[in-house]
Amino acid sequence: MSGRHAWAQPIRAVLFDLDGTLADTAGDLGAALNTLRVARGLEPLPLATLRPHASAGARGLIGVGLDIHPGDDEFEPLRQAFLDAYMACLADSTCLFDGMAELLLRLEAANMPWGVVTNKPHRFTLPVMAGLQLQARAATIISGDSTAHAKPHPLPLLTACEQAGIAASATLYVGDDLRDIQAAQAAGMPSAVAGWGYLGGDTPVPDWGADIICPHPMDIWSAVQAERP
């Protein structure tokens, strides 16, 4: 675990990104991308190739899997085909990362609300959370289309804090993508990198500017407890 965790005030709630932070969804996202590849007569790509791009959703996976990007004529139809394929398999292999179940239990036992803020559309977020049996336990669930802006805009995080009843400055946001950390910074929230996540993108993780980098979910608990009275 690296970085500072002398929070300005004790952490009273924790918010998580979904894909690559709370849950390992790469298998199902990769399967949806490979459905598109097979339909085009291409061989499926191994999960190891797709995993680093999973946090970028359809944009990232279509880009690495088919070399088609937003603005290309084919992108929007492929995006819709990807989403349809994903809806059919979104709970097949998705599971919590090792240690995450224990972390959530610790937070709940300490009466610390936790929630999810993701850029995944609402119609996918809720079935994934239900499949993980977490929908009723989360204090707040904000999807990419729940507010007028998605991350890295701060509005989704601020909306989640409002719903959880905890100030942004006392809420830790945990994510595995640069835009997660940017959103937290814009919202005035402490931030942590999920070192166990997908960690895609070109910017080195130490340069993201997060308050702390945690290799394992239970490191979040250690960091939060370090500053509690």
Results as ranks from 00 to 15, higher is better:
D207C: 12
A192F: 10
H69G: 10
K151F: 00
V116R: 08
H53S: 11
D176L: 11
S146I: 07
S191T: 09
R37F: 08
M218F: 06
A6S: 09
P52F: 13
I11Y: 06
G65W: 05
A8N: 06
L105S: 12
L172H: 12
V224R: 07
P10W: 01
L45A: 09
E162C: 10
D176H: 00
S169I: 11
P215I: 00
L50S: 14
A39Y: 08
P46T: 12
A13P: 15
P190Q: 03
V205R: 01
F82W: 07
G60P: 15
L105Q: 01
R137S: 14
L18V: 02
W208P: 04
Q182G: 10
A168P: 13
L33M: 12
R123H: 15
V64H: 01
D176W: 10
I213A: 06
F97C: 00
A167T: 11
A91N: 15
I213K: 05
L178I: 03
I141P: 02
D219K: 13
A164H: 05
L15G: 02
A164G: 01
T94C: 05
A150P: 05
E108W: 07
F82C: 15
P121H: 03
P77Y: 07
A164Q: 14
L42F: 12
Q9A: 12
G57D: 09
P44F: 05
P156A: 03
P52R: 00
P127D: 14
A150C: 12
A186S: 15
I142S: 01
A101R: 11
K120L: 08
G3H: 06
G57P: 15
M189P: 03
E102D: 10
A88Q: 15
A187W: 07
S143G: 05
G30T: 11
G197D: 05
L96V: 08
R4D: 11
A183L: 04
L90F: 04
L158G: 04
L126F: 05
V205E: 09
L83Q: 12
L90Q: 15
Q185T: 15
T203A: 07
I11C: 08
T49W: 12
I166P: 02
I62N: 02
K120C: 14
W196G: 03
A210C: 14
D202I: 12
L36Q: 00
M112C: 14
A186H: 12
P229T: 01
A26T: 05
L105G: 00
V64N: 05
W114Q: 03
P70N: 10
A109W: 08
L15T: 04
R228I: 00
L155W: 05
S222D: 13
P156F: 09
A81L: 06
D145I: 00
A150R: 15
H69W: 07
V38M: 10
P44L: 07
P52A: 07
V128M: 11
Q163K: 13
G63T: 10
C95T: 12
M129H: 05
L134I: 09
